[in-house]
Simulated assay, not measured.
Amino acid sequence: MAIFENIINHKISNITADELLKYASQFNIAITTAQAQKIAGYLRGKKVNIFNDSERKALIKEIARITSPETAREINKLFVKFTK
C-alpha cells in the first residue's frame, strides 16, 4: 500500500494544469483552466501526503485561499477519489 500512496503523492506534487483538468473531467468535477493552473502551480514541488487527513485539510485550506472555497471542495472530492 505504501508504494501506491507514494505514487499518488508524487503525481500530485508534479501534476500539470492539463492533467488536473483531465482528472477533474474524468470524475465529473468542475474546475476552470485558470483554477487548474493556480492549483497545479501551488502543488508543484510540494511534499504532501493526501492520505493523511490533517495534511490534506491544510492543503485544501490553501487551495481555498488561492482559488475559492467551492473549488477547494471540488479538489478535495478529487483527492478523496485518488485515496480510495
Rank of each mutant, 00 (worst) to 15 (best):
N6E: 15
N6T: 12
N6Y: 12
N6D: 15
I7M: 14
I7A: 15
N9Y: 08
N9P: 06
H10R: 14
H10I: 11
K11P: 00
I12M: 12
S13T: 04
S13N: 12
S13M: 03
S13F: 03
N14P: 02
N14L: 10
N14F: 05
N14Y: 12
I15C: 06
T16E: 12
T16C: 11
A17G: 08
D18R: 13
E19P: 05
L20F: 06
L20S: 05
L21V: 04
L21A: 08
K22D: 14
Y23I: 00
Y23D: 11
Y23Q: 05
Y23E: 07
A24K: 00
A24V: 01
A24D: 00
S25C: 00
S25N: 15
Q26H: 10
Q26I: 08
F27M: 10
F27E: 09
N28G: 02
N28F: 08
N28E: 15
N28T: 08
A30H: 12
A30S: 15
A30N: 14
T32A: 11
T32C: 07
T33W: 03
Q35W: 02
Q35H: 11
Q35V: 07
A36F: 02
A36D: 01
A36S: 03
Q37P: 00
Q37T: 08
Q37N: 04
K38N: 14
I39F: 09
I39C: 07
I39R: 01
A40N: 07
G41A: 08
G41D: 11
Y42E: 01
Y42F: 15
L43W: 07
L43A: 01
R44F: 12
R44Y: 13
G45H: 07
G45R: 13
K47N: 13
K47C: 03
K47Y: 05
V48T: 13
V48G: 05
V48K: 07
N49V: 02
N49S: 12
N49R: 01
F51E: 10
F51R: 09
F51N: 09
F51Q: 11
N52K: 10
N52V: 09
N52S: 07
D53L: 10
D53Q: 11
S54I: 08
S54D: 13
S54T: 13
E55V: 01
E55K: 05
E55M: 11
R56K: 13
R56Q: 04
K57H: 11
K57F: 04
L59Q: 00
L59T: 00
L59C: 01
I60M: 13
I60R: 02
E62L: 03
E62Y: 03
E62F: 08
I63R: 04
I63N: 05
A64W: 07
A64Q: 04
R65D: 06
R65Y: 10
I66W: 04
I66M: 02
I66N: 03
I66T: 08
T67G: 02
T67M: 02
S68K: 02
S68A: 10
S68G: 04
S68W: 06
S68I: 01
P69V: 09
P69A: 12
P69T: 10
T71N: 03
T71H: 02
A72W: 02
R73E: 15
R73M: 07
E74F: 01
E74M: 13
N76G: 02
N76P: 00
